[in-house]
Simulated assay, not measured.
Amino acid sequence: MDKNKKTLDAAYFNELYVKNRDPWNFESSEYEKNKYVQTMLIIPDDVYANVFEIGCSNGALSMLLQSRSQKLLSVDSSSIAVANAKKRLSEHKHVTVKEMEVPRDFPSQQFDLILLSEVGYFMVEEDLLLLRDKMIDALLPGGHLLLVHWTPPVEEFPLTGDQVHEFFISKSGMEPSGPLAHLKNKTEPQYRMDLFLKK
């Protein structure tokens, strides 16, 4: 890890959203739309009681997740993104959108599905490992954890998508007593998905 790099904070993301309401083209990109379709296909259960989405941005994926959730907590570190997501999801009363900067901030409840999509590579290793352990602790036995990340390296990001996923895979399969079972991998030219089960 580059010692000069640090986890990208809320100020970094707010600056992006000031310049562009949709900095990653989540709302208009065919790549993103196709990735969202694949994300929903890899999630095993039709409906989950309590879902936690880390990094909701403007709520484009949250709109799909809410249809598979009895309760959905979607969070983002950017106050601008959170305001936009709240507007998008305002009619869905089972959805809560909050400003939260993980891993420092983390909800106290437990979940049967946790989604970390396009977030992990913004963190340095120390913060990602802390988040990983908090996510595992917050996942109910039998619950699912899904990671989705862009894999090509980006110079300003502390980690790559592949590195993020390998940190979670290291918690599965190596020991029978490990907390996670690795259920499925889907690898595309520019992103990968890995699905886990909490033992």
Rank of each mutant, 00 (worst) to 15 (best):
M1W: 00
D2A: 02
K3Y: 04
K3N: 04
N4W: 05
N4A: 05
K6L: 10
T7L: 03
T7Q: 07
L8N: 02
N14K: 14
L16S: 12
Y17M: 12
Y17D: 10
K19M: 10
N20G: 07
R21E: 15
W24F: 05
W24Y: 05
N25H: 11
N25V: 04
E27F: 08
E27Y: 06
S28F: 01
S28T: 12
S29D: 00
E30T: 14
K33L: 10
Y36H: 08
Q38R: 08
T39G: 00
L41G: 06
L41Q: 13
P44T: 00
P44R: 00
D45S: 03
D46H: 06
Y48E: 00
N50C: 09
N50I: 02
N50H: 09
F52E: 09
I54K: 02
N58T: 13
G59H: 10
G59P: 05
A60T: 05
A60P: 01
L61G: 01
S62A: 14
M63S: 11
Q66N: 01
S67D: 10
L73N: 11
L73R: 09
S74F: 03
S74D: 03
V75P: 07
V75W: 11
S79V: 15
I80G: 10
N84T: 15
A85P: 10
K86G: 06
K87P: 14
R88S: 07
S90C: 13
K93Q: 15
K93N: 15
T96W: 04
V97W: 12
V97G: 11
M100R: 13
E101Y: 15
V102D: 13
P103T: 11
R104N: 15
R104E: 15
F111G: 05
D112V: 04
L113H: 01
S117Q: 00
E118H: 05
Y121V: 03
F122I: 08
M123N: 03
V124A: 03
V124H: 04
E126S: 09
E126V: 08
E126L: 07
D127T: 10
D127P: 10
L128M: 03
L129V: 10
L130R: 15
L131I: 08
R132W: 03
D133R: 12
K134G: 15
K134I: 13
M135F: 04
M135K: 04
I136F: 13
A138E: 12
L139A: 08
L139H: 08
G143N: 04
H144G: 07
L145P: 00
L146H: 01
L146Q: 01
P152I: 08
P153F: 07
P153H: 10
V154N: 07
E155G: 06
E156V: 12
P158W: 07
P158Q: 06
L159T: 04
T160M: 05
T160I: 04
T160K: 04
G161A: 11
Q163E: 13
Q163V: 06
V164H: 05
V164Y: 08
H165I: 06
I169C: 11
K171N: 11
M174P: 12
M174L: 14
E175D: 15
P176G: 15
A181P: 06
H182I: 02
H182Y: 01
N185S: 14
T187M: 09
P189G: 07
Y191A: 00
R192M: 07
L195M: 02
K198G: 03
K199G: 13
K199A: 13
